[in-house]
């Protein structure tokens, strides 16, 4: 009987595996480092396979929903959704302009915010582990993507770039519990931090204890990080609870962007230093 794994090979396999495990324990931050000489071929193969599979799935989905199933309805729905996105964006922008104008009348000097360059990207995958709310986009270091860039869609912000490979990048969604985005309440201008939850929702933390926040309030980015300029829509307050003995109100936020159906996104590029 032929043995596929001889005694020596078994020892070598175990020893090699143990060496790798000990190696990563000694250098625990290796997953956060940029792809090096040895990682590049692996990431290249992974990106190609991921892109091909993602494209195939999109094609199949497109054929099914576009040509076989309700051709007209789908087109009309897409058009109406695009209109709704645009009108929502305009409405929230106007609200923000009104609030801004009210505050600016009291100021003597006003410096308008610079326009931010955007770059389109296609979503090619989700996080391989089911524990993290993250997506993979087809923009990597070759196209100038770097860690900590913000990502948005017309309806709101999506997340932040946390890992960059040559052809792809991983974006941590705002609904992930490791995500934290400085934000403010549009109506009251109170500032806090939007964090993700384990259940894939978001919550606004560290508001002032006396905050007057209510359900339906719109949450915007506060511009305190480089990733997101001030005034981008984060979401809407869906629940406010004030538990006895708790300093901060418990505020649940529904992200404006539909994070479960992302197909194309916009990467917010940093303007070149002046």
């Amino acid at each position: 009987m032929a043995q596929s794994v001889s005694g020596y090979r078994r020892v070598w396999l175990l020893a090699a595996g143990l060496a790798v495990v000990i190696g990563v324990l000694i250098f625990p931050d290796w997953p956060r480092r940029p792809a090096g000489f040895f990682d590049r071929p692996v990431t290249a193969v992974f990106s190609v396979l991921q892109g091909a599979l993602s494209s195939a799935v999109s094609q199949v989905r497109g054929v099914w929903s576009g040509y076989v199933f309700f051709v007209g309805l789908r087109e009309e729905s897409r058009r109406l959704q695009a209109d709704l996105d645009r009108v929502t964006l305009e409405r929230d922008t106007l609200r923000e302009v009104v609030e801004e104008n009210r505050r600016l009348t009291a100021l003597l000097e006003f410096q308008p915010s610079a326009t931010v360059p955007l770059r389109g990207a296609r979503v090619v995958g989700r996080d391989p582990s089911r524990w993290f709310q993250a997506i993979t986009i087809d923009r990597g270091s070759r196209t100038g993507t770097v860690v900590d860039l913000g990502v948005e869609v017309p309806t709101g912000i999506v997340g932040t770039v946390v890992k960059v490979f040559p052809a792809t990048a991983v974006v941590l969604l705002i609904s992930d519990r490791l995500s934290a985005v400085p934000a403010l309440v549009q109506r009251t201008r109170e500032q806090g931090i939007v964090e993700g939850t384990f259940g894939g929702r978001a919550q606004l933390k560290y508001l002032p204890p006396s905050s007057d926040i209510r359900e339906g309030d719109v949450i915007l980015t506060s511009g305190l990080t480089d990733a997101f300029p001030k005034g981008l829509i984060v979401g809407t307050v869906s629940r406010v609870q004030r538990a006895e003995g708790e300093l901060y109100p418990d505020v649940e936020v529904i992200p404006s962007a539909d994070l479960s159906r992302l197909e194309e996104v916009l990467v917010i590029e940093r303007p070149p230093p002046s």
Binding site: R10, L13, L14, P31, F46, P128, V162, V170
Partner: peptide, 21 residues
């Protein structure tokens, strides 16, 4: 032995490509 080595390889790949860090 193969199960252990396969676990090492897959674990490395998952940590590398996921957002876990």
């Amino acid at each position: 032995p193969a199960g252990f080595a396969g676990g090492v390889a897959l674990g490395l790949a998952l940590d590398f490509f996921s957002a876990s860090g």
